[in-house]
Write a protein that binds this DNA or RNA. Structure first.
Length: 744
DNA sequence: CTAGGGTTAG
């Protein structure tokens, strides 16, 4: 287990710093600077210890005390008790004894084991100023230390000082570069090694294959495997299982078959890792039959293979089968581990079974399996999807207690969860607290701001990201463009759209065009949006046409709406939403014949309008309300309250927007139909069951309609409530009669 | 080098 690194690590020595006289302090600081100059490795740690004179023990007979400490440090390191090894190292220094060439590798190894980068640097610094840093064992342990702490550049700097790097040092650095996804550097080092006449071994090859696989460079992994094979190396179980994983990700089924044949010939079939990798590969290639067959052919049941099977089923949309198989394994008394539970939770949250995911999370804790830093990011999307804030917060607490809150995956997932639960400030807090961030963390925060209509914030984050040196990817641009379109920043949107290919070499994809069509649509420039679609370098898809159609709905633009709808009816004939949108456009212009035609078209295909559905969490319980469904126990009160509000609204001069009802019915009936919209029912249910003034939060499966929007705006001021409504697109934050979306 | 499970957009 990795403990927390406290700095400076040797606290009693730090205290002694205060008793140092200024000249000594200066000389120590100079030595620290000498170290920085020598290695080009920055260190924030001051050398605040009164060092013994350099090289004092170098040529003399070993001091018995040094031997005593060294032996203990060595022993503890060997037993993987790194914490104790560090404690003893600290004691050794406090005795005024310096680390020598013999003990340094052990001390560094202990820092490596604990990922104590700052302490490791301090030790490196000490080694440097005392002149013990020319020993190849010291240097290679430093290479490993920097690699373990993800400081590959620093590792390389130390590597370059090795007089004759051996195959172990090369293997470590090669796999490090591969793991970081630095293909170019890996290849350069690979050639350099050949020029120096260092022969690779099986470990070196496997290191590169697993490394590339880890960083998502699957093709490179496969190429390395082939190269290894062609240079006459016999792949072992590790090579095979890593390459199978890469082959699966690339969906190179033929290659998968070949490797399958190879591993049978070489007798690697019974290897557990190989067998589960094989199941995993077939799962990724959508070969569920071969997958099950590989599972059935296993001689003994292995938990890894079971997990691979569950994941494979879920990957292919067979969540129910995955759940069934999982239950079976559990019933058979199989020892399910964290991976098993995490896999099934991931299957649920990735396939819309959010409630089940939450339930399984609870169940795993009941059976005594502790969630880890992978479980939490698998669970959090489920919380976000159904805005289950309490569950999300519980998971957050869990990661704080479990010491995994600094994990990037956990942090990014938390940002996303809080944003989807309407707590964008908490997203920002999580972001600010992250010790390390990656592309996904930045993107998640921008997406959060976009969802909340905070376009300026999203743009600021984008600029901050650039300044921090993080390169944006195509998702970053989707986030920033959708933020601009939500927030009405038309010029900024155009700027980023152009900058994307010009400055970053990222070619615009369909999603970017969809964002731009939205952006133009919002500004009322529908014709320009249409022109853009026509000039796109590839065939527009449903997203792009859908963006145009919904913009047409906002401005009730009939002719362009018809064009977009016609395309959509071909691209996705079974999506009722498109028919509804077109029919609403017609209805707004009282074109009842056309409305009727669209309705008939829909009916003839057996399509029905997706029922509007809203959720509201009241006192930890989630209530679901369906449009036009009167089954809720408090329905009478809801309708009463709604009527009362409607009266109040009319009194203050607001009238329901009849536009939004597409059927050709009597005026009064229209009003009745509008009353049934689920989001309004949910908001009123919230009003009835919570204390006055407390905020309400509703999520909806469709986009919010204009009438409900107006009514909720009214409620927010009349009842003095903050109301959050999340529709399919974004958040609407109603406060004092205004909405954060500024009525788009 | 030592499996298997992972976060973002639409």
């Amino acid at each position: 287990m990795h403990g927390k690194e406290v700095l400076p690590f040797f606290p009693h020595l730090r205290r002694s710093f205060f008793y140092l006289n200024p000249p000594t302090y200066l000389s120590l600081n100079r030595q620290r600077h000498a170290f920085i100059l020598k290695y080009g490795i920055s260190t924030a740690t001051n050398l605040t210890t009164n060092l013994p004179s350099p090289c004092a023990n170098h040529h003399s007979v070993p001091d018995p005390n040094v031997l005593y400490f060294s032996t203990r440090i060595y022993e503890f390191t060997k037993l993987n008790n790194f914490g104790q090894a560090i404690v003893i190292s600290s004691q050794m220094l406090s005795q005024g004894l310096m680390f020598d060439t013999h003990v340094l590798p052990s001390v560094i190894k202990a820092c490596t084991g604990l990922c104590f980068l700052k302490t490791g640097k301090l030790v490196h610094c000490l080694a440097s100023v005392s002149g013990f840093d020319s020993d190849s064992r010291v240097l290679s342990s430093l290479v490993h230390m920097y690699l373990k702490c993800n400081r590959i550049n620093d590792a390389h700097k130390v590597f370059d000082r090795l007089p004759q790097p051996d195959v172990v040092a090369y293997s470590a650095l090669l796999s490090g570069y591969a793991r970081m996804g630095r293909v170019k550097e890996t290849k350069e080092l690979f050639s350099k090694r050949r020029d120096e006449g260092v022969e690779l071994n099986l470990v070196s090859w496997n290191g590169m294959i697993t490394g590339f696989n880890h960083s998502g460079h699957h093709l490179e992994a496969v190429i390395m495997f082939q190269k290894m094979h062609s240079e006459g190396f016999k792949p072992d179980g590790t090579s095979i299982s890593s390459v199978l994983s890469a082959v699966g990700d690339l969906e190179m089924l033929n290659m998968g078959f070949q490797i399958h044949g190879y591993l049978i010939r070489k007798g690697l079939g019974p290897d557990k890792c190989v067998a589960s990798a094989l199941i995993d590969m077939y799962g990724k290639c959508a070969c569920t039959f071969e997958m099950s067959q590989a599972f059935d052919e296993m001689h003994q049941v292995d938990i890894g293979a079971c997990n691979a099977l569950v994941m494979g089923l879920s990957r292919n949309g067979l969540v129910d089968n995955a759940l069934k198989v999982f239950r079976q394994f559990k019933g058979q008394g199989m020892e399910l581990n964290v991976v098993s539970w995490t896999s099934i939770i991931a299957s649920c949250s990735q396939n819309g079974k959010d409630i089940e995911a939450l339930e399984l999370f609870r169940e795993m804790q009941v059976v005594g399996i502790k969630p880890n830093s992978v479980t939490i990011p698998c669970l959090l999307p489920a919380c976000g999807n159904i805005a289950a804030l309490m569950h999300g917060k519980a998971a957050h607490c869990f990661s704080l207690k479990g010491g995994i809150s600094s994990n990037v995956y956990v942090g990014s997932a938390l940002i996303d969860m809080y944003a989807k639960c309407g707590r964008i400030q908490l997203s920002r807090l999580c972001f600010d607290m992250m010790p390390t961030r990656n592309l996904v963390s930045w993107n998640a925060l921008m997406a959060g701001y976009a969802m909340h209509g905070k376009a300026n914030e999203a743009v600021n984050i984008f600029q901050w990201m650039q300044r921090s040196g993080q390169k944006p990817d195509f998702v970053s641009f989707i986030c920033v463009l959708s933020a601009c379109s939500q927030g009405g920043l038309t010029d900024e949107g155009w700027y980023y759209f152009h900058s994307m290919s010009k400055d970053y070499g990222i070619e615009a994809r369909l999603e970017h065009y969809a964002c731009m069509v939205n952006l133009l649509g919002r500004a009322g420039r529908l014709q320009e949006g249409y022109t853009m679609i026509q000039q796109m370098p590839f065939k527009p898809d449903a997203c792009v046409w859908g963006a145009l159609l919904s913009s047409c709905r906002v401005y009730n633009h009939v002719s362009l709406g018809e064009i977009a709808a016609k395309e959509l009816f071909e691209l996705e004939p079974r999506n009722p939403g498109n028919y509804i949108l077109l029919s609403n456009i017609y209805a707004s212009k009282a074109m009842w014949t056309e409305v009727h035609t669209v309705r008939t078209m829909m009916n003839s295909k057996g399509l029905r309008k997706n029922p509007g559905c809203s959720w509201i969490e009241i006192k930890g319980k989630v209530h679901m309300l369906l449009a036009g469904d009167n089954s809720h126990s408090q329905m009478t009160q809801i309708i009463e309250k709604l009527a009362e509000l409607s009266m109040e609204m009319k009194k203050s001069g607001c009238f329901p927007d009849i536009d939004f009802v597409f059927q050709d019915v009597e005026e009064q009936d229209k009003e009745q139909i509008l009353c049934g919209h689920s989001e309004k029912l949910a908001v009123v249910l919230g009003l009835l069951n919570t204390s006055p003034g407390s905020p309400l939060q509703v999520i909806k499966n469709l986009r919010i309609c204009g009438d409900c929007h107006a009514v909720i705006k009214f409620i927010s001021s009349f009842e003095k409530r903050e109301i959050f409504v999340r529709d399919t697109n974004r958040f609407h934050h109603f406060k004092d009669g205004v909405c954060s979306c500024r009525d788009y």
